[in-house]
Amino acid sequence: MAESILKVKDLCTSFNTERGRLKAIDGVSFEVHKGEMLGIVGESGCGKSVTSQSILRLYDEKSLAKYTGEVRFHDSSLLDLPEKEMRHVRGEKISMIFQDALSSLNPVFTVGNQIMESLLIHKSITKKEAKEKAIQLLKDVGIPDPVRRFYQYPFELSGGMRQRVMIAVALACEPELLIADEPTTALDVTIQAQIMDLIVEMNKRRGMGVMLITHDLGVVAETCSKVIVMYLGQIVEEGLVTDIFDHPMHPYTIGLMESVPRLDSKTGERLHQIKGTVPLLNQIPEGCRFAPRCPHATELCRKKMPEFLEVSDTQKARCHRINEI
């Protein structure tokens, strides 16, 4: 197994809200290795994005958020780093791409300026060198006419082009870990495929670790090697792609798999859905968090939180009844 870059252990993030302190994620642990692509899947509101933003400590710690647990990036503990050093991690060591590429680019600067920005923040290079590097980056992410694009504003580019620019910005300092937070959600299917190909290519070519956050199971199956399934701030199942897709253990994962439309399903058949909705954070059920929506729930499930049990060497699931289902 390749060298581990990021090690997250028992990470909890809680927010101060009007309804008191709410735990958005509760005891999340995982590891990302060099050159690995890790998929994080789950419904909206399950804590995927909070996990990624907590790793970079993007929430205001003075008034809003509180982090506990441990985030290790190589040898440094990110949760203990002072803000000033944290800034050197962001963008240089770990960078992030967002869902909506239009609102992720500053409308008053040219595309080139924004790619140069991250280079100028972290590296001590001249503007001229930064410019050459930026144009090279635009070319790397597959933008035709890079010189022309360099001088254009974000609103002059198409959605797919903007996402490519965002990727160029994120890759500018050659980070060791890329967090892609639903990078293809706002794009149409053909462009989605192109962008995913680009991310996979960068992952292979640079040996960069990638955390892919998405709710598109198809994308995960195609690109990732490991998958984490999250539900209500907890990891409910983790394993290799083959494990999760071939024999999912947790009822939630099974529900997710069945909710994907299939080519071989009967005509007129209704698509499976997981009943109910994700509960609010201030109404987290006692016991197993999925129990109220689970078709297999028993008395025990409603009372006691299940352990994160090993199913095989590579697969783990948080369910009392893994052996029965």
Binding site: D100, E117, S118, H122
Partner: peptide
Amino acid sequence: TYIEALRCLG
């Protein structure tokens, strides 16, 4: 988002 993205860039 672009301000958040900038914070991500450090």
